[in-house]
Amino acid sequence: MPLPFLTADRAFDATDDVALPFDDHDRWRRPYRPGPWRVGAAALALLLASFVLVAAVIIAAAGTVAGAGATFAMAALIIASALRMLRVGTWVSRHGVRRVGFFSTTTVEWRQVGAVRTAQQPVRWLGLPRTVQGQALILVRQGGEQTTLLTDHSADFLSRVEAFDRAADTVEAWNAEYGVVTATR
Rank of each mutant, 00 (worst) to 15 (best):
R33Q: 09
A41L: 15
A62H: 12
S159K: 12
T182Y: 08
W174C: 04
A167L: 02
P31L: 09
R117S: 14
L86V: 09
P34K: 10
S159C: 05
P31Y: 08
R124M: 03
L47Y: 11
P122N: 13
Y178T: 01
A60C: 03
R141V: 00
G40R: 14
E145I: 06
A41P: 02
F22V: 06
G134Q: 07
S104Q: 09
H95I: 03
Y178P: 00
S81L: 12
L47M: 14
V54Y: 02
A82R: 01
V123G: 02
T107W: 02
T151H: 02
A82F: 03
D24K: 03
P36N: 06
L139E: 09
P21M: 00
T71W: 02
V171I: 15
L86F: 08
Q142E: 14
R117Q: 13
V171A: 06
E177H: 10
L77Q: 04
R99I: 09
A173C: 03
P122W: 07
L158S: 05
T64H: 11
P31T: 04
S154W: 08
G89F: 08
R87M: 11
F102S: 04
G101Y: 08
R124S: 14
E162V: 06
S93V: 03
S81W: 13
T118E: 15
E109C: 05
V100P: 01
A183Q: 02
L47H: 09
A173M: 05
R99T: 00
Q142H: 07
L47I: 13
T15A: 15
L83K: 03
L137E: 05
R185N: 10
V100W: 07
R117K: 12
R160V: 01
L53C: 11
A176E: 12
T182F: 10
G67M: 13
A163S: 12
S159I: 04
A155S: 09
V123I: 08
V116H: 04
T71H: 03
R27C: 02
F12G: 06
R98H: 06
G63K: 07
D13W: 11
L44N: 12
V113F: 06
Q133T: 15
A55E: 12
A75H: 04
W37A: 14
V140D: 14
V39M: 05
R27Y: 02
F12E: 07
A76Q: 05
F12W: 13
E177V: 00
A41C: 11
T182C: 05
R27H: 09
I59T: 15
V18H: 04
A80S: 12
G69E: 11
G67L: 15
Q121D: 02
D156L: 03
